[in-house]
Amino acid sequence: MKKTILLGIMGLSALTGFSQTKEIPEAVKAKITQTYPKAEKVKFEKEKGNFEAGFKNEGKEMSVVLDAKGNILETETDINFSGLPKEAKQYIAEHFKGKKIKETAEITDAQGKKKFEVEIGGKDYLFDESGKLLKN
C-alpha cells in the first residue's frame, strides 16, 4: 500500500512538473540555457504575463524575468550586504539598528539600470544605484 501511494505521488509530481515546463515557451528556456549555461536547478513559472526562471548560477541565487519571446526584462541576483551602495548601508544602519536582514539583492532592468532590494522584518526596501531609498 505504501509503495502504491508513493508511486502515485511521484507520478503526480512528475506530471505537474511536466505541465508547468510545457507551458513555458521554447524561446524562454533557450535564452536561459544560452545566457546562463552553468545554471543549476532551473524552475520556471508564469509571472504577470511573463515568465520567471529561478536558479543557482556559479554559486549565486538568481531569478530572471523574460517575455514570451525570450527577451530578458529583469535579473535579480542575491548579494552580500557589503555589495550595497554606501548610502544604502548607512540608511539601514541608522533606521534598522539591531534588525535582521533576511536578503539583499541587485536588480538590473533591461536597460541596465540597477536597484538594490533589502528585506528587513518581512518588508522589502528598494534603493537606487547611489543608495537613495526608493520605496518605503
Rank of each mutant, 00 (worst) to 15 (best):
residue 93 A to V: 01
residue 93 A to N: 12
residue 94 E to V: 13
residue 95 H to M: 12
residue 95 H to K: 15
residue 95 H to A: 13
residue 96 F to P: 03
residue 98 G to R: 11
residue 98 G to N: 12
residue 99 K to N: 14
residue 100 K to Q: 11
residue 100 K to I: 08
residue 100 K to H: 13
residue 101 I to Y: 01
residue 101 I to C: 06
residue 101 I to M: 07
residue 102 K to C: 00
residue 102 K to F: 04
residue 103 E to D: 14
residue 103 E to T: 08
residue 103 E to V: 09
residue 104 T to W: 02
residue 104 T to H: 07
residue 104 T to K: 04
residue 104 T to E: 05
residue 104 T to M: 07
residue 105 A to S: 15
residue 107 I to T: 12
residue 107 I to D: 10
residue 107 I to E: 14
residue 107 I to G: 07
residue 108 T to W: 04
residue 108 T to I: 13
residue 108 T to R: 12
residue 108 T to E: 15
residue 108 T to P: 07
residue 109 D to Q: 10
residue 109 D to L: 01
residue 109 D to N: 15
residue 110 A to N: 12
residue 110 A to G: 01
residue 111 Q to L: 11
residue 111 Q to G: 05
residue 112 G to S: 09
residue 112 G to V: 10
residue 112 G to I: 08
residue 112 G to F: 06
residue 114 K to Q: 14
residue 115 K to G: 00
residue 115 K to V: 10
residue 115 K to T: 14
residue 115 K to D: 10
residue 118 V to L: 06
residue 118 V to Q: 11
residue 118 V to P: 10
residue 118 V to H: 11
residue 118 V to N: 10
residue 119 E to F: 00
residue 119 E to M: 09
residue 119 E to L: 05
residue 120 I to S: 08
residue 120 I to T: 07
residue 121 G to I: 00
residue 121 G to W: 00
residue 121 G to V: 02
residue 122 G to F: 07
residue 122 G to A: 12
residue 122 G to K: 12
residue 122 G to N: 10
residue 123 K to E: 13
residue 123 K to D: 05
residue 123 K to F: 02
residue 123 K to R: 14
residue 124 D to Q: 11
residue 124 D to A: 10
residue 124 D to L: 05
residue 124 D to M: 00
residue 125 Y to I: 03
residue 125 Y to P: 01
residue 125 Y to W: 08
